[in-house]
């Protein structure tokens, strides 16, 4: 299978606090990948390094065969790698409609702005009702929907989602999960960080456990009998609790 994203021996951190310790994984073009692991072990740092917000100390990130290590966030967005970040608060004084329009800022997305707007408003009817509402006054769930919608407005070729259902009520979580499943069905490759293993098991074909800044274990979901309990066993077996 053609490789869409390849991360090789990535090290990165904040100042002299190294968080990623030579992290590697690959993702094929026709698969969805899940990442999970304990809090504070580098999942968000990994995503921010992939999307160019953090410059890695060493290692390599390739997207669709192109080396994108250390490129600017703008270049990476233009290539089509879109990062929907954890708890992104967006622009509190801008209206939902304006923020959606701004989502089509990348050159490659401009021509498709109209179609993409129809698409995300069909996916999230609540956003369509709130076009003139300021982002800062949205509920947590609505803001998370807007985050996803803004990502989709950019015409992604790969969408990386950092805890898209974080802190939501079970009902809203289901709603978001259903929307993400529909995005995946549309053929969009997804790389998702989530704590909710069941959600990842339904969505993805492979899971990577991120622990101490490396991929500590690979779990093929494909094997039919694999379930929550097995992941938990692997996970806790691994971390030694």
């Amino acid at each position: 299978m053609h490789t869409l994203l390849e991360v090789e021996g990535l090290t990165a951190g904040y100042g002299d606090h190294q968080v990623l310790n030579g992290l590697s994984f690959t993702m094929g073009e026709d698969e969805n990948i899940g990442l999970f692991g304990p809090n504070g072990h580098g999942k968000t740092t990994l995503f921010e390094t992939i999307s160019g917000l953090i410059k890695p100390a060493s290692g390599k990130v390739s997207f669709d065969g192109r080396d994108i290590t250390g490129r600017s966030p703008r270049d990476i967005v233009e290539i089509g790698l879109i990062h929907v970040s954890q708890g992104n608060r967006l622009f509190s004084d801008m209206m939902v409609g304006e923020v959606l329009a701004l989502g089509a800022y990348p050159r490659r997305a401009r021509a498709r702005m109209r179609q993409n707007l129809d698409m995300v408003e069909a996916l999230f009817p609540r956003l369509a009702e709130r076009r003139r509402q300021k982002c800062g006054t949205l509920s947590g769930g609505e803001r998370q929907m807007l985050n996803l919608a803004v990502g989709l407005m950019a015409c992604p070729r790969l969408l990386i989602l950092d805890e898209p259902t974080l802190g939501l009520s079970p009902r809203l979580k289901d709603e978001l999960a259903a929307a993400i499943a529909r995005i995946a069905e549309g053929g969009m490759p997804l790389l998702v960080v989530e704590q909710d293993i069941d959600f990842l098991l339904r969505l993805t074909s492979r899971l990577y456990l991120v622990n101490h800044g490396v991929v500590a274990r690979t779990i093929e979901v494909g094997s039919d009998s694999f379930g929550h309990a097995d992941v938990m066993k692997e996970y806790f077996g691994m971390t030694g609790h």
Partner: peptide, 26 residues
Amino acid sequence: LNHTQIGRAIRAVGQNQKSAQLIGIP
């Protein structure tokens, strides 16, 4: 400032630089 992409981008940068970067705004 209110009805063009560059105007919205200027305002967005003032409100949240990180989010603006993730949209591809220079």
